[in-house]
Simulated scan of single mutants.
Amino acid sequence: MRTALVIGTGLIGTSAALALVGRGVRVHLADRDPEQARTAVALGAGTDEAPEGPVDLALVAAPPAHVAGVLADAMRRGVARGYLDVASVKGAPRRELEALGLDLSHYIGSHPMSGREKSGPLAASADLFEGRPWVLTPTRDTDTEVLNLALELVSHCRAVPVVMDADAHDRAVALVSHMPQLVSSTVAARLEHAEEAAVRLCGQGIRDVTRIAASEPQMWIDILSANPGPVADLLTDVAADLDETARALRALRSAEGAEREEGGARVRDVLRRGNAGRVRVPGKHGSAPRAYEVVAVLIDDQPGQLARIFADAGTAGVNIEDVRIEHATGRQAGLVQLMVEPRAVPVLTAALRERGWALRQ
């Protein structure tokens, strides 16, 4: 791949463009908002000059509702040898293109499973996709050259290619992305009018659950409008679970004897199934989650504190597998939770105490 045209210079399009430019590809940028394209140019994502002839690959990074129209226009103009989109739904755009009677042998649907709560080119990064799955949805009609171009793009972005059927992809992202977004937003919505005294008690649990609720609403309207059926089915199942759990909790409050025990068993079953589902979420390097031990360190909110902790752990020969920070309410301090292999806990604990860090149980 020597040349590419990125149509749509939001978070995903600009991030892909930055990655391609970093690998020596000449990238042309286009957007219905010229100011947004100029911002991407200023970030080093390419040029907003139109290509003189067909490019190797046209990457369409428009909202799902507009993907088919933008792709159809680009195909009719013959702007590239291959065409690819990065919309978060795959079945609907392809069916729209088929209905238009276009030759889809030079097109492949794709979806990089990466993003941020912020949108737009200023949130873009060349390493946004590094190590993340990038779904490709070829069909038996997909030209081999186009598939190879798509694989080259994924490689340039340092992502991990995953080949799926388009409709299977849409059902999968409804489960692991679209439904969780609405559940997170629903939980966060309960905080809008909550008493201030209650909100001040927010800890890491509520922060984890509501993190993605900070996402941009209009972006999610576009995504959900393109995949409503599978998401609605999942929400119906979740609502049934919640309704059953609510009845079980009321039994715990008001019933006695066998009925109370049954209520407790039903709540326990929900928690158990949650444990079983959580275990299936891939952990580090895509493997099943491993059981790490936590070494908790109290730090002040000052520059260089995290760097010092990591350096001290490195000096002790301990690899930090993961890290979380729980901020203290109303204080310039926080609790850093260092996840390490169980056998490394005594070594790290001794090293950090020797260097004056305050550890917490």
Rank of each mutant, 00 (worst) to 15 (best):
D85K: 08
D167M: 07
A251T: 15
I221N: 12
I221Y: 06
V162M: 12
R290W: 09
V27M: 04
Q332H: 15
T47C: 04
A265F: 12
E321S: 07
N227I: 01
D301N: 13
D33P: 08
A61T: 06
V162A: 08
G304L: 07
T186K: 03
M219E: 04
D322T: 05
D56S: 06
L201V: 01
R211F: 00
L43P: 00
V154R: 09
Q361F: 11
L104K: 01
G203A: 02
S225V: 01
Q332W: 13
R290Y: 10
D33C: 10
R266C: 06
M113T: 10
N148C: 05
L84A: 07
R77I: 00
A188P: 09
C157R: 13
V89I: 04
V297E: 03
H111K: 04
R158F: 06
Q181N: 10
E152V: 12
R207K: 03
S105N: 10
H178Q: 05
D208T: 01
A159W: 11
A239E: 11
R324N: 15
R268F: 12
A258N: 11
V183L: 07
T142E: 09
L100E: 10
D312E: 08
L18T: 07
R26W: 04
Q204A: 03
V340D: 02
A232L: 11
E98D: 09
A358K: 13
A19R: 14
T210A: 01
A350F: 05
A123D: 05
D322K: 12
Q204H: 04
P282A: 03
T39C: 10
P64V: 08
A150L: 08
R77A: 02
L352S: 01
